[in-house]
């Protein structure tokens, strides 16, 4: 049955029905820790996407070769390799992002979403659906991270800064602030601090599950 699903439905499933944070409640650790700003959330989400795609692709390619008795060590090695590559690339090319994400990039290795998808999906499905699954889950994760990061940054600092990248200009590196969204809000520092993460995630999780439940009730039966 899994095989017959279309790729687009796989994609959408990862964003909505199997949304990693709000529905599967996986990967909460980075979600809580790095969502202090929109940008950090986006950076973490992109790093995660690369790892997720690479790991799903490789594990799905190797799925017939992977002996089931050592599948977990192999998953960890594959995921760890991609994570280390991302870590090294970010350190070399995007130092501000590297500083901001800190330990949480290396910690993608033990992110339960990646290993969960490898175990539950990529190990049993062909390459294309696995990539669609990885994309769906990643987009879902990015949406959640940027949403939480955006809310926390807006309420905590009163503005959202977007794209503060180190750009290479004639071999020189320069700061470029592309866009700043400013909304007159009295900043509540607590939103940037760890409790703010819990408030935001709790409120959003309630909201999405409430809406989801209403929609399912309208359809008549649980889907």
């Amino acid at each position: 049955m899994e095989e017959r699903r279309s790729l687009s439905s796989e994609l959408v499933r990862g964003i909505i029905k199997d949304n990693p944070v709000f529905c599967l409640v996986l990967g909460i650790c980075p979600t809580l820790a790095v969502t202090t700003s929109f940008e950090n959330g986006l950076g973490m989400g992109l790093a995660f996407t690369f790892v997720m795609l690479g790991s799903n692709l490789f594990i799905s390619l190797l799925r017939k070769q992977i002996p089931s008795i050592v599948r977990l060590p192999i998953f960890i090695v594959v995921i760890g390799t991609f994570v280390t590559i991302v870590d090294m690339v970010i350190e070399a090319y995007l130092p501000p992002l590297y500083e901001a994400l800190g330990i949480f990039v290396p910690l993608i290795v033990v992110n339960c979403i990646v290993i969960g998808r490898a175990e539950a999906y990529a190990n049993r499905n062909p390459v294309l659906p696995s990539i669609a699954d990885a994309l769906g889950i990643s987009v879902g994760f990015i949406l959640v991270l940027t949403l939480i990061g955006g809310i926390r940054e807006l309420l905590g600092t009163g503005k959202i800064t977007f794209v503060m990248l180190w750009l290479l200009e004639n071999g020189q590196l320069g700061f470029l602030e592309l866009a700043t969204l400013h909304i007159p809000i009295e900043p509540a520092t607590v939103m940037i601090l760890p409790p703010g993460a819990f408030f935001t995630i709790g409120a959003l999780m309630f909201f999405f599950n409430f809406v989801g439940k209403k929609i399912r009730e309208k359809r008549g039966r649980g889907d």
């Binding site: 280390t84 590559i85 090294m88 350190e91 070399a92 090319y93 130092p95 071999g171 020189q172 590196l173």
Partner: peptide, 15 residues
């Protein structure tokens, strides 16, 4: 990857 990023890392930190 290590070899490839090492050079850029030096440029970046010097920059």
């Amino acid at each position: 990857t290590y070899e490839a990023t090492q050079e850029q890392l030096k440029i970046t930190s010097a920059g």
